[in-house]
């Protein structure tokens, strides 16, 4: 999928090879070191480009400078630093002594940590099955080129474009005790009292999951659409000739053909769900639910690590746990895929 867009880009450069361009020191032919470059280059290049220096030794590093500097400085260095801090008692004010695994053993006895871990795990369990299945059905619904389908596809994708904050605020209003959902439920006589979507500990978490699912549908729909386009049509036709109905064809033709995509969607949505922050934060009015009962792991990291009393060491240890579990979740999904392929 990542390379999909190359096809459209693979246009021949129209510009004539420049004969008028200024020669700089970079193209001075220096055969001796050019040889190393050419060895690695394509066969054609070796034949025709002999003796022409491809680039100056420092050129690749100049090209890489901005990207590599940002990545090293703002991704990899903080990552290493997080691991180091996790073994210290660093605080916003003072601290910073090496304390071994103290932060990790503290976690074991921290009820907030277990609440947060439970909520993040529940979030994965509650969200992933729906985000694997519903967008697939949606993709099948919009797959056929019938009049107006482009409009429907665009409309279904709109929630993806909006910020989680916007989406969260929209749903906070819809799920309010006097909001639209409760009025409709009352009008239909489903309930007599407003449902406490945002104030009940359990319902708040479920509401946040619904928002995540609602916002993710369109995104994974597009992922599935690309995969469905590659399902061989003759398989469907053959199955239909054999008398298989739509349900049967779904399970014996469509699902096997797009299984890898389903696993990908499962992995992506699981990792994203485990890192949930904004949905719960916004729907709970930044409180994390009644008495913080709906706090997620990322919410806990922020809560512990920021502010004047920020416990950077402990917060970093929690971050390490988040990283390890996220990575584990990714590896687990990939492993599942492999095992089932063998079976």
């Amino acid at each position: 999928m990542v390379t999909d867009d190359n096809a459209a880009d693979r246009l021949p450069g129209r510009r004539e090879p420049n004969s008028h361009c200024v020669r700089s020191s970079q193209d001075a032919p220096v055969p001796s070191s050019a040889a190393t470059d050419l060895r690695a280059a394509g066969r054609g290049a070796r034949r025709s480009g002999r003796g022409i220096r491809r680039h100056w030794r420092a050129t690749p590093w100049l090209f890489l400078l901005p990207g590599l500097a940002i990545t090293l400085l703002f991704s990899l260095y903080p990552f290493v630093n997080t691991i180091i801090l996790a073994f210290t008692d660093a605080q916003v004010l003072g601290g910073g002594n090496f304390t071994g695994g103290a932060n990790f053993s503290r976690m074991l006895h921290d009820p907030q940590f277990w609440t947060a871990l439970r909520n993040s795990a529940l979030y994965v369990v509650g969200v992933v099955p729906f985000l694997v299945l519903l967008p697939l059905l949606l993709a099948m619904l919009v797959q056929r080129h019938i009049p107006g389908i482009a409009f429907f596809r665009a409309a279904f994708y709109t929630p993806v474009v909006a910020s989680v904050v916007v989406v969260g605020l929209i749903w906070t209003w819809l799920l309010d005790s006097r909001g639209l959902v409760n009025s409709v439920l009352k009008a239909l006589h489903v309930v007599s009292e407003p449902v406490p979507f945002l104030t009940d500990e359990t319902l708040l978490l479920i509401s946040a999951m619904l928002v995540t699912i609602w916002k993710g549908l369109g995104y994974y729909m597009i992922v599935y659409l690309a995969a469905l386009a590659n399902v061989p049509r003759d398989l469907h036709e053959a199955a239909e000739v054999d008398g298989a109905g739509p349900v049967r064809r779904f399970f014996s033709v469509t699902v096997p053909a797009i299984r890898p995509t389903m696993v990908l969607v499962g992995a992506l949505s699981a990792v994203a769900a485990f890192r949930v922050f904004s949905e719960i934060y916004i729907l709970s009015g930044s409180s994390g639910g009644p008495a913080g009962a709906d706090i997620s792991l990322v919410m806990l990291i922020r809560q512990v690590g920021t502010g004047l009393n920020g416990e950077l060491g402990y917060s970093s240890a929690l971050s390490v746990v988040l990283f390890v579990l996220t990575l584990g979740l990714m590896l687990l999904t990939m492993r599942l895929n492999k095992n089932e392929e063998v079976a």
Partner: peptide, 24 residues
């Protein structure tokens, strides 16, 4: 990187022979 790697190298190669430097 994937996008550049997917391009045909022929034209770049021709300009290389014509003396275009890496930036060009």
């Amino acid at each position: 990187r994937n996008a550049f790697a997917g391009l045909s190298y022929a034209v770049e190669e021709a300009s290389l022979i014509d003396g275009a430097n890496a930036w060009q």
